[in-house]
Design a protein around this nucleic acid. Structure first.
Length: 167
DNA sequence: CGACCGATTGACT
DNA sequence: GTCAATCGGTCGG
C-alpha cells in the first residue's frame, strides 16, 4: 500500500487551449471525456507519464493534473521506483525533496503508467480518500506550468509552504 | 507520409 | 540560465 497526499494540482477544461481535450475527442484523450472519477494517464516527451483525475460529466473533457504529492506511506518503495533521483534538490537557496515533486516524478514513484489509464478511482486499485479540509489562506494559486498557450489562466493550486510542491 | 512538438526531467555551462 | 533525450499524437501535403 502506497499513500500520498496531493499537494499541487492544475485544472484543464475543454474550452482551454492548453488542454488535451481542446481539439475534441481522440484515441489518446478519450478517458478525459469519460465520467468524472476516472484516472487519465498520458505519455509525453517520449518518456514520461502524467496522471489526471477526470472531474466533469461524461463528454465534458475536464480533468485535474496531479503535479505533486507528499509521500505518507511506502516512501521507501517510491524511492526505489524512481530511477535517477537525488533525495533532495536545490530550490533557490533551500533544498527540497526530489521524489514526487513533479507530475512525471509522482507517476514513476507510484508506478502509474499506460496500464493505469482509465482506472475507476472508486475501485480498489487506486483511489482517493478524504484529507482534513484546508482553509483558503492555506491554498495558493498561480498560472500553470510548462505551456505555450493558456499561460495566463491561474488554474494551478498548491498548499502554501508545503515542501513537496514542485516549485 | 513526413515534420513538428509536447500539461517533463535531469545534466550541464 | 541552456539543452538533449525520445516517441506517439496530430496535422498538413
Amino acid at each position: 500500500m502506497l499513500i500520498a497526499r496531493i499537494v499541487e494540482t492544475e485544472a484543464y477544461s475543454q474550452n482551454d487551449p492548453a488542454s488535451h481535450s481542446f481539439r475534441g475527442l481522440t484515441k489518446r484523450n478519450e478517458v478525459m471525456f469519460s465520467k468524472g472519477g476516472h484516472l487519465y494517464v498520458y505519455f509525453t516527451y517520449g518518456m514520461h507519464f502524467c496522471a489526471n483525475v477526470v472531474t466533469g460529466r461524461a463528454g465534458k473533457g475536464e480533468a485535474v493534473l496531479l503535479r505533486a504529492v507528499q509521500p505518507i506511506e511506502g516512501i521507501d518503495r517510491m524511492s526505489r521506483y524512481r530511477k535517477h533521483h537525488s533525495h533532495r534538490t536545490e530550490r533557490g537557496d533551500a533544498l527540497q525533496p526530489n521524489l514526487t515533486n513533479g507530475p512525471a516524478k509522482l507517476c514513476e514513484a507510484l508506478m502509474i503508467g499506460r496500464k493505469e489509464n482509465g482506472i475507476d478511482l472508486l475501485g480498489d486499485e487506486i483511489y482517493l480518500i478524504n484529507s482534513p479540509r484546508l482553509c483558503p489562506p492555506a491554498i495558493a494559486t498561480s498560472t500553470r506550468i510548462g505551456m505555450r498557450v493558456g499561460k495566463q489562466t491561474k488554474w494551478r493550486f498548491f498548499i502554501k509552504g508545503n515542501e513537496w510542491v514542485s516549485r
